[in-house]
């Protein structure tokens, strides 16, 4: 078990290679919550009912808050003087490390709920473990985010149940959403080389250990929703290593518009 530094100056206590790995991983987490928060923010003003418009904005805001803490930490780990905004706005698509799932378009409400549920189920269970990381900063960020994620998971789980066991139409739409999004769920728990190396040090959770809890929760929710759990679907990966679907480019075109058009200014 690695002994983690407790303050910024002590980051130097990490061997350079480990520090680089940690930077990559924190960046991956930051990109993930940024892109999903961005997607949720697209709903603002267009939700199916006013109350749910507020709910989705709340989740988006939680994710953006988590994003900022993570980029700030990533910037410190990198130690090159970049800011949270430099990291969020001034990289090219292949440098983003978010899994493919979170960049998928909002589609209809069933697509959004499915994407959210699959992510929340991983996010929550991962954060629970990450709280115990020997890296104190990461543990502290997880400590705050896990409460938010617990609520997100509750919210999306209930919507899966409502849509699955609602009307014929809602069921059809949910089936369709699952058929298109399930194939992106496996990437969340498939470790990249970076993640494997960090898992070996004990700084981040072993995903194999998360799986039983994730599967149990999913089985419970799907049973309530009267949904069969999809089997034998080929899982798409690549996002966490910078190989994205075509959707990310359009997200970045909007996200980076101001920073790219007016380089170097303060807003």
């Amino acid at each position: 078990m690695q002994v983690a530094p407790s303050d910024t100056s002590a980051l130097n206590a990490y061997p350079p290679e480990l520090r680089q790995l940690l930077f990559q991983y924190v960046l991956q987490l930051a990109d993930t919550s940024l892109i999903l928060g961005h997607r949720l923010s697209e709903w603002c003003g267009h939700g199916p009912v006013l109350e749910q418009d507020l709910a989705m904005a709340n989740i988006g805001l939680d994710l953006l808050g988590e994003t900022r803490s993570l980029y700030q930490y990533a910037a410190e780990l990198e130690g090159q003087g970049r800011t949270e905004d430099d990291l969020a706005f001034l990289r090219i698509a292949t440098q983003y490390r978010n899994p493919l799932l979170v960049e998928q378009p909002n589609g209809d409400f069933a697509d959004t709920i499915t994407r959210q549920f699959l992510f929340d189920n991983f996010h929550y269970h991962c954060l629970v473990q990450l709280r115990a990381s020997a890296d104190e900063r990461l543990a502290a960020i997880a400590e705050k985010a896990v409460k938010e994620a617990a609520y997100h998971l509750k919210w999306s789980s209930e919507w899966i149940i409502r849509l699955g066991d609602g009307t014929e139409e809602s069921r059809q739409r949910l089936d369709k959403a699952l058929a298109s999004l399930w194939r992106y769920s496996g990437e969340l728990t498939t470790p990249t080389a970076t993640e494997k190396a960090l898992q070996a040090t004990g700084l981040i959770p072993d995903y194999a250990a998360l799986l039983p809890k994730m599967e149990a929760h999913l089985a419970h929710v799907f049973e309530e929703a009267t949904l069969p759990v999809p089997q034998g679907v080929f899982m798409m990966t690549g996002g966490k290593e910078g190989r994205h679907t075509e959707h990310l480019g359009y997200i970045l075109a909007e996200l980076q518009y101001m920073q790219r058009t007016y380089p170097g200014l303060t807003w």
Partner: peptide, 20 residues
């Protein structure tokens, strides 16, 4: 007040609407 389909949703909506 607010609208919700059931009590569970009403409590969650109340949280999202009235305790921001």
């Amino acid at each position: 007040s607010l609208h919700a389909a059931d009590a569970t949703m009403a409590i969650q909506n109340a949280r999202d609407v009235y305790t921001r």
